[in-house]
Design a protein around this nucleic acid. Structure first.
Lengths: 465, 465
DNA sequence: AAGTGGTCTAGACCACTCC
DNA sequence: GAGTGGTCTAGACCACTTC
């Protein structure tokens, strides 16, 4: 029997005693899940201590332990010994980003890839169609890529500092697919992956789908902070780390070379599996003076390096290259067979043709040129902070006022502009600093971009007053 | 303290007391996992009762409960109240099937799809390359399929009895990818899915990867037995069911129409989510006299119907159509964005062109003709049982003797023939009946098929003696 | 009725956090 | 040192299976 009356006691969550059914731990877990999903419990909320809730419900505390454990495995809550149990960030609502239904607005939200260069891709497709071995691209053979396609992949990645054998690479159906393969094959539900405080929404959602918990780590202008990573690793059992060293999405931060070395040492010490998404290598390697090498080179045996071609070459053809250490090969190949069967050889062949003919470099040159142009247009509206990548396809704009992210986006949508608020990119708890991610590579024309930024600037100006 | 000496006690599993570390439950779970993966504990083995093991290890039985629970969630073991705890089938070894490294053997293993018809596909590719809107296939737009592609999909599936709105379909990158989307979006780790006693290996492995437990249900010549399904549903909390009604892989069994109605009633009663893989619709609808409709029509609100084009049209182009009820739409679309971003519009456009030009039907006619031919060749070597599909691309041959599946396959590999033993297709415990799945659609020529079957027949003959 | 898994209570002790 | 989560023990009771 409870000793005290709890009616006026400030408990952050009071489950309904009456609706509890046996087994109680299941019933409690279900009610907690519902209340989190329905938004009654905000991310970060501290739940009642196990013993306190047990007292309130007139149950034994170990029953509460079991209930909390179920929700923890589902990624809805997390517990820190000594501090308490908290509602997980992003447990509640979906932040999935897609191109669907942009309708009539100017899109500064979804990051596309200057589709103007696709005429060069069309030429490559025509060339591929003329190949004598075209029929060899239409069967089940070579599920991880045909040898000459892998050779082209290595050729392409050599410019970014990757040297690997054919046995250590495989071809996947785009970066997101490669991430699915890596996460599903190398991690288990309930595992933890360290990631930037802000990271891209569809990675957050993917981790949620696979029941992998993200642990946000703060960063400075040189990238993730090694001390903070070390701190979390010593506190929690962390299994992996996700990084985008060449240009983090959404913050545009590049990890500097000295920082890569520091981070690698922590990663090695704690035996984390590194997932390195290097989709922006093409605007960084050979462009940014500080660039030396990918982190894969520092930790080849415990890393998966993913180099997608959607941003650099063509977004509609779903191709990404994966590079991995010997120890990870078997698991990743198995995942390719079980999750993909194979990647379309036709798509890969077009990319291969573009690389081997040198046209891919031409496309990259054009995209860099376009990136420079749109960044110039951006800087005519907003001050460019020195932090971050100069050629990024999107910018990370600090905004003031503690406006709600959902409302903010809705307001601008009404004005005909789609942008995404930093709340969408939170891998962990909210921060008082707010930003907008502004895509510069998705509008139909430069004029559209200009007028979109104009609307945005005026709106922010009005907000300030 | 243990009361008895266990040294001569017949316990099926004796963990090493000395290597146990705190927390004990984790340590025990880890040791159990290792012993299962390393094959010391065969699938189906009954583990010691919780209390008995607790006594043996000098621990409290609730600690063993916790350890067993961890392994149960991972799908390594399963528990039945009243009966005991058992090692899960297929917990140990990988049975993934792929095309890799067939080398010089005649392939009667992997089921390909008469790639001879690919010349027609090449013509379609050439036509697509000439389209004025080709550039529209190369961007991020329409991640679930372009409207005219979806229209062609509906057109294609109408022949199989599917009627749906554009809102209720989406395009995925092949059947296996569609299965990933369905399983990842509609189920959680630890959920249970009922399936045929024998089902295809990569589905078993996929379920394992996503930590979904398969519950094998026996069948007769008309398909899965409704009573057996009912029995399992009342005993266990089952969340879904996977069926291939048009031609089960590997058994070639078609579910007859009366059986579809019986099964649908059980599925409805227990609110299971039905995953219907109808990849063989093209050799069944309009061909087999008994065929009336897919099961999707009986349970549209709780079903995902998957119609891949790899077997019917072209295997190298990764395209599958998904049809789903309104209640499932949101989750499936979200999974497409988070797991795929999009499916290659170029691949889909080629399939669309084949369908709209009527060439797809031409391909199907040719494949049916080839299927008839190879089944005739097969029946010249082995008696054709009346059970099963007459046009199946593979056959299910009962074999005698209790030979080990791995050795059996290895023996035949040495003789230059690749086949797969029924052990690979077990979704549950082993049975005394053994079979071979013999692919008829993968050899380079009919002569190869003939000599492959010849080798096989001689080998089986020798075994009998 | 015996065997077995599942749930729940009551209480002890440990390790970590935060003040 | 108070607060909190994590682990473990000892024992009770229930529901289901199998014989």
């Amino acid at each position: 029997m409870p000793v005290n009356s709890f009616e006026n006691y400030p408990m952050s969550w009071k489950p309904d005693k009456k609706t509890l059914k046996r087994p109680f731990y299941n019933s409690i877990a279900l009610q907690l899940e519902q209340d989190i999903i329905n938004g009654f419990l905000a991310p970060g909320t501290k739940l009642p201590p196990q013993r306190e809730l047990a007292d309130f419900l007139d149950l034994n505390f170990t029953t509460i332990t079991r209930a909390y454990k179920i929700c923890e495995i589902k990624g809805l809550i997390y517990a820190i010994t000594g501090s308490g149990t908290f509602v997980a960030p992003n447990a509640a609502h979906s932040i999935t980003i897609s191109t669907d239904k942009t309708a009539n607005s100017i899109d500064l939200g979804f990051v596309a890839s200057f589709e103007q260069t696709n005429s060069i891709v069309i030429e490559a497709i025509q060339k591929v169609v003329g190949k004598s071995y075209l029929d060899q691209l239409l069967n089940y053979n070579d599920p991880t890529g045909i040898p000459h396609q892998k050779a082209a992949a290595l050729n392409w990645m050599e410019a970014f500092g990757i040297k690997a054998k054919q046995d250590n690479i495989a071809i996947a159906s785009g970066t997101q697919n490669a991430l699915v393969l890596a996460l599903a094959s190398l991690f288990e539900p309930g595992n933890r992956i360290a990631t930037d405080f802000y990271t891209f929404s569809n990675f957050i959602e993917l981790a949620k789908t696979l029941h992998i918990q993200l642990i946000p780590i703060p960063c400075d202008q040189y990238g993730m902070l090694p001390d903070e990573l070390e701190k979390q690793c010593s506190q929690l059992n962390i299994h992996g780390i996700f990084l985008m060293p060449s240009c983090s999405n959404p913050t545009t931060i590049m990890i500097s070379d000295f920082r890569k070395l520091e981070l690698a040492s922590v990663i090695r010490k704690h035996r984390l599996i590194l997932i390195e998404d290097d989709i922006h290598a093409f605007i960084t390697a050979g462009v940014i003076s500080d660039y030396k090498q990918p982190m894969y080179n520092l930790l080849p045996e415990q890393s998966v390096y993913i180099c997608g071609t959607s941003k650099s070459i063509c977004s509609g053809l779903r191709v990404a290259y994966m590079v991995f250490g010997d120890a990870l090969r078997e698991k990743i190949l198995k995942a390719i067979f079980n999750l993909n069967v194979k990647t379309s050889s036709l798509d890969v062949e077009v990319i291969t043709e573009l690389i081997l003919s040198g046209k891919a470099h031409e496309i990259v040159q054009q995209k860099k040129q376009l990136a420079e142009t749109v960044n110039d247009i951006y800087s005519s509206y907003f001050p460019v902070n020195k932090i971050g990548h100069p050629l990024s396809f999107y910018r990370w704009l600090p905004i003031h006022g503690n406006s709600n992210g959902v409302n903010f986006e809705a307001d601008l949508k009404k004005l005909g502009v789609r942008v995404f608020h930093s709340d969408r990119f939170l891998s962990g708890q909210s921060s008082s600093e707010k930003y907008l991610r502004i895509a510069l590579s998705s509008t139909h024309s430069l004029d559209d971009l200009d007028s979109g930024l104009n609307v945005l600037a005026q709106y922010l100006d009005k907000q300030m007053k």
